[in-house]
Amino acid sequence: MDFNNTQAIYLQIADYVCDKIQLEQWREDEKIPSVRELAVILEVNPNTIMRSYEYLQQNEIIYTKRGMGYFTQPNAAKKILKTRQEQFMAEELPQLFKKMQLLNIPVSQLQASYEQFINTKN
């Protein structure tokens, strides 16, 4: 995996796990790779994976069954979606607005572009 240069690796790994869950590659309430397996896949120190899993546990995305490993929470995908929506609203949208203002693009123009985008994607 290629990590970006700015964000802490353990957070990037947490994001990677969330992506997998959101894309339903890892199903809800099912076992996810062990710390060591994920360390090998991502070529990082197992201690870093440990930290990501602890972080995800705190955020109730995954949980641990004693002696069996890590599992996704039954409502993990929903939770991730909600968190990411909030994050988008709080962090990315203001950035976008700032740029729109700079380039003088009205919000009404976005409506059409967005519909076009959705249509071509389907």
Binding site: R36, A39, V40, I41, E43, V44, N45, P46
Partner: peptide, 12 residues
């Protein structure tokens, strides 16, 4: 080098 990282990550 990639293989090396994978191996070390899995072995420690």
């Amino acid at each position: 080098k990639k293989q090396f990282r994978k191996i070390i990550a899995g072995v420690i």
